[in-house]
Simulated assay, not measured.
Amino acid sequence: MAIDDITKKAQEFLNDEKVKGMLESEQAEDVSDRVLDGVAGLADSLTGGRFSEQIDDVKGTIDEKVGNE
């Protein structure tokens, strides 16, 4: 699965109204930051840093949709 496919699926999931309500909280922000940092770090490590910019873009897109910051 390509990075673009992952991004598209993540955006579809995060645009669901029920999901939006659950994700707009301080607790969700804290948890999501830790998870996103871990996943981004792992993805960057597995790809040898070749896709760091794309990984950061996906992380940023998801982070904007989760929590209250």
Rank of each mutant, 00 (worst) to 15 (best):
L42E: 14
S32I: 03
R34C: 04
V31E: 03
D30C: 09
L36G: 00
D37Y: 07
A28D: 10
L46N: 10
L42N: 12
D56H: 10
G49H: 09
D57F: 10
F51E: 07
T61M: 14
E53F: 09
D30L: 08
G41T: 02
D56A: 13
G41N: 03
D37T: 04
A40P: 02
A40K: 02
L46Q: 06
I55K: 00
E29D: 14
D44G: 11
E29W: 11
G41K: 01
E26S: 14
T61W: 10
S32G: 15
R50P: 02
A40L: 01
E53A: 11
G48C: 14
G41A: 08
L42W: 04
Q54R: 08
V35P: 01
G49A: 07
T61F: 12
A40H: 00
E53Y: 08
D57C: 06
V58G: 01
T47A: 14
L36Q: 02
R50K: 15
T47S: 15
D56Y: 12
G49T: 05
D44R: 02
G60M: 13
G41H: 03
E53D: 09
G49L: 06
D37F: 06
D56F: 11
V31K: 05
V31F: 03
R34E: 09
I55G: 00
S45R: 04
G60E: 08
R34S: 07
G48Y: 13
E26D: 15
A28L: 03
D44C: 14
V35S: 02
L42P: 04
D37R: 09
G60R: 14
E26V: 12
Q54E: 12
K59I: 05
D33N: 14
V31C: 04
I55N: 01
L36K: 00
G60P: 05
L42G: 12
D30M: 10
L36M: 00
S32D: 10
D56L: 14
D37M: 08
F51L: 15
R34N: 05
Q54F: 06
D44E: 12
Q27V: 14
D56M: 12
D57G: 10
E53R: 11
A40D: 01
R50N: 11
S32E: 03
D44F: 07
E29Y: 12
E53W: 08
T61L: 15
E53P: 02
G49M: 05
L46W: 08
G48F: 15
E29Q: 15
G38V: 01
V39D: 02
Q27W: 09
S32A: 13
V31Y: 01
E53Q: 11
A43H: 11
E53I: 05
V58R: 00
A40W: 00
D30E: 15
A28Y: 04
A40S: 09
L36S: 00
Q54S: 08
A40E: 01
K59P: 02
V39H: 01
V35Q: 06
L36W: 01
D44Y: 12
F51D: 07
A43Y: 06
D57Q: 15
G48N: 06
V58K: 03
T61H: 08
T47K: 01
A28Q: 07
D33V: 07
L36T: 01
Q27D: 14
S32N: 07
L46D: 09
D37N: 07
G48P: 00
S32F: 03
A40Q: 02
G48V: 10
E53N: 10
R34Y: 03
